[in-house]
Design a protein around this nucleic acid. Structure first.
Lengths: 95, 95
DNA sequence: CCCTATTGTTTATAGTATAAACAAGTCTAT
DNA sequence: ATAGACTTGTTTATACTATAAACAATAGGG
């Protein structure tokens, strides 16, 4: 096969955007990700859960100014997966 | 929004692989794509149809050595879409 | 002829993506 | 203190998608 398989967890627009952001900033809360990605809250919530279940991010729930606050941080496994994904998809982009 | 939307036609592993190949070689037949992508025939058939319906490739059916032969070629719209996809996803890959 | 191989298509099903509906609590004004 | 609007996120309903198994149609070999 001429193409490496693409990690199905990362081969999704919103999840890839979230990981991309977290790789850059180390950690960001729900509203940060919401604004940067332009997603709906529902979709973002689902995809954060999937990334957490995959062990790609660490999610910490607390309160900030009395409101719930969900902070996401990249996990080592997530960084590794991202780097692998970047390598893999670049094979597809040469054309 | 910090991320450009990704063309849903191309944001699929097999379709992206097919377009990537066709951009490189101009045209290739069903078995060529089958071998290079490692896909099943059923899946390849479906995705070729979708790429054709999107106007991204041109499909020419004929016979070769008495067997049916399906040749796929990149269409201008497909090349354009591919180039746009490459630009768009690169935003996601910086991290 | 019958059996296997070739080349593809159709279809059944499981999985995925997404937004709408919901939930739980907070603030503000009266 | 209560109504009503806002904040933050979750659950769920549904439409969409991806994939392989089943199917079809013809060709070649013994």
């Amino acid at each position: 096969m001429a193409f490496a398989p693409l990690d199905p967890v990362l081969h999704n627009q919103l999840r890839l955007a979230v990981i991309s952001l977290l790789v850059a900033v180390e950690e960001g809360d729900f509203n940060f990700l919401l604004e940067k990605t332009g997603a709906t809250r529902g979709n973002l919530s689902v995809q954060i859960t999937k990334l957490k279940e995959a062990g790609y991010i660490v999610v910490t729930k607390s309160f900030k100014d009395n409101y719930p606050n969900t902070v996401c941080a990249i996990a080592p496994k997530g960084l590794e997966a991202f780097e692998h994904y970047v390598k893999a998809i670049k094979e597809y982009l040469r054309g």
